[in-house]
Design a protein around this nucleic acid. Structure first.
Length: 610
DNA sequence: TATCGTAG
């Protein structure tokens, strides 16, 4: 969900990508522009969080006093919109005397913020429900129709709410969501109290009273949950509770397949570990396979999958799944991930293998526990945690049986890392450019933590493409022979023909039913090495596939998250200026993943920021 | 134009 973004450019103002013309109003006519307060609020919020890029494109709250917007145009549009819905019989108009004004304000604000879908939904509701929302706009947020900041703007502008406890709920929920983004699954009641007191500008005693009311309230809908001095997002609380209960079940259902396996020694030296893993599997529903980077977790998993009939391989990112083989999928794809969580249910398999399990959160854990009678969670607790929420894997490893691999196979001559530090990102960019010239004919991969900015995937990809691939353009900014990654699962007649995370080479364009597609060639296991190896035999997923341009990205530079679990000969790991990202974004875990991807050598290019 | 990932 998107907050309110306000920018000013000369005589125009941009709000969430919509542009409005600014009119100057004389002070003496004592006209208060209806939307000025909400603009001021939006700006204040933005300032509080700090303008990250420092571009200063936000205007000062004080200056909004002399500005107003062309409201007549908005009113006309809203009225037109309303009339249309009335014509379709989707709107009741029997408002009481007091409500039309509130209604008008709310409608205008929704329209003004570019929330047309919400506006339309709102207009289609029964009057009773509409009035409920009008009397407390935070319901828009609590019931997931709007983001927190938009609800706040409506509430401030329309001088609601009339039921303050809902406001406290909304703020509490918002505080929890922010904490979750920072990797916290819960916060203490005290923490919540301090935050609420600050945000609502209330006495702590009073907040304490509100918290008591919240605690006494019935649990319904999206309300924060209080338990044992901690406060949780409801979905985190319930899925966590349920997952912990399932994890406590030790014995697997009677299923002989695992018990009777005799493992031949393959001479690779990992048979002892494989036996250990198999005996754990026979005795326990859930087992953990762990080990540092390059200790052969994936290889062992592939071996186990080849031995135990009806094993489903999965991973937490598309790229990691693709690396496990053709039949592997993301957990999300297997279990029907959608806007309301996982929709699926049960998998028809003996054993589910979940790779890169350090990226699991409670929701994914809960889903896989429901799905399979037996699971191997494979991962390294020292590698990347989930995006949002805390590392569930770190907790599981304390209670579940663990098989640990400790011999490193990836780095034949020991881990080889060369760190190059530069003050500015620009200097890092120059160093990268020199380094790439040297690596041009080698098997290399650039990885970076971010998408945006000078050292993000988007710009680096364009840059590397520009200097390494002189081939003609085939579509948009894609060139013939470009190295690309598929960013979405692609189905043809219900069959998966290309998976998110698959890497290939753009080979041309084709037109089907008037739509233009990029023809992408894939090689077995997806590690496409541009110059050599261009055989396209095998099944469809290893051959040529037509992919929509929007489902492809250049793959010269990938994020560290995507590349976790992958490897190649030479890796360039970029660390941007830490001041340009959120302070604690570049963690030890990320650095560990980043510097352990190169088989021969990893170059770490770091912008120290001076 | 998003900190990172997942889905159709």
């Amino acid at each position: 969900m998107q907050g309110l973004v306000v920018e000013r450019q000369n005589n125009k103002i941009r709000i969430n990508s919509r542009t409005w013309i600014i009119e100057k109003k004389e002070r003496e006519n004592n006209y208060t522009p209806p939307l000025v307060e909400s603009q001021a609020i939006a700006v204040k919020d933005k300032e509080k969080r700090g303008s990250k890029n420092g571009k200063g494109n936000l205007y000062l709250a004080g200056r909004t006093e002399i500005l107003s917007l062309n409201l007549e145009r908005i009113y006309r549009n809203v009225i037109k919109h309303t009339e249309k819905l009335k014509g379709e019989g989707k709107l009741e108009t029997s408002l009481t005397d007091n409500e039309p004004l509130l209604m008008k304000d709310t409608l205008v604000l929704l329209y003004y913020m570019g929330r047309k879908a919400v506006l339309k939904k709102f207009l289609s509701w029964k009057l009773k429900k509409q009035v409920k929302y009008l009397s407390n706009p935070y319901l828009f947020y609590l019931n997931k129709h709007l983001d927190f900041h938009s609800s706040k703007v409506i509430s401030m502008r329309t001088q609601t709410p009339m039921a303050p406890i809902l406001t406290v709920y909304a703020y509490a929920y918002h505080i929890l969501e922010e904490a979750y983004k920072n990797g916290r699954e819960s916060i203490t009641e005290n923490h919540l109290m301090f935050e609420l007191a600050e945000m609502l500008d209330m006495e702590e005693d009073k907040v304490e009273g509100e918290i008591e009311i919240m605690k006494a309230g019935k649990i319904s809908g999206n309300m924060p949950i209080f338990d044992g001095g901690y406060v949780y997002l409801p979905w985190v609380y319930f899925l966590r509770k349920s997952a912990l209960k399932m994890l406590a079940e030790v014995k697997p259902d009677s299923n002989g397949a695992v018990n009777e396996i005799v493992l031949p020694d393959n001479g690779n030296g990992d048979s002892k570990k494989a036996h250990e893993l198999l005996s754990q599997l026979a005795a326990n529903k859930y087992t953990i396979l762990t080990g540092g980077p390059g200790t052969g977790k994936t290889t062992l998993l592939e071996r186990i999958a080849g031995i135990i009939p009806n094993t489903q391989l999965s991973a937490l990112t598309g790229k990691a799944a693709q690396r496990l083989g053709e039949d592997a999928r993301t957990v999300h794809s297997l279990l029907g991930f959608g806007p309301r969580g996982f929709s699926k249910k049960e998998l028809d398999c003996n054993l589910l293998i979940v790779d890169e399990a350090s990226m699991m959160n409670w929701r994914t854990l809960h889903a896989v526990l429901l799905a399979s009678p037996r699971i191997i969670f494979s991962g390294d607790p020292e590698q990347l945690p989930p995006v949002g929420g805390e590392s569930v894997f770190k907790k599981m490893i304390e209670t579940l049986p663990v098989v640990k691999l400790d011999k490193t196979w990836r780095f034949k001559n020991g881990l080889c890392v060369e760190t190059i530090k530069k003050e500015t990102e620009k200097e890092v960019f120059v160093a990268l450019s020199n380094l790439l010239t040297a690596l041009k004919h080698k098997d290399f991969q650039v990885i970076t933590p971010i998408h945006g900015g000078l050292l993000g995937t988007r710009y680096l990809n364009t840059y590397i493409q520009g200097s390494f691939n002189p081939s003609p353009v085939i579509l948009d900014n894609l060139r013939y022979k470009d190295r690309v990654i598929v960013t979405r699962n692609i189905y043809l007649d219900g069959e998966l023909i290309a998976a998110n995370g698959q890497v290939g080479i753009a080979e041309g364009v084709d037109t089907v039913e008037g739509n233009i597609y990029v023809c992408v060639g894939f090689q077995r296991n997806g590690s496409y090495n541009g110059s050599h190896n261009s055989s396209h035999n095998g099944s469809q997923r290893n051959g040529r596939v037509l992919v929509d341009r929007k489902d492809l990205e250049l793959a010269y530079a990938l994020t560290v998250h995507k590349y976790q679990g992958s490897e190649c000969d030479y890796v360039v790991f970029i660390i941007p200026d830490r001041k340009k990202v959120r302070e604690d974004f570049i963690t030890d875990e990320m650095v560990l993943v980043g510097k352990t991807r190169g088989r021969m050598k990893t170059y770490v290019l770091e912008a120290t920021g001076g």
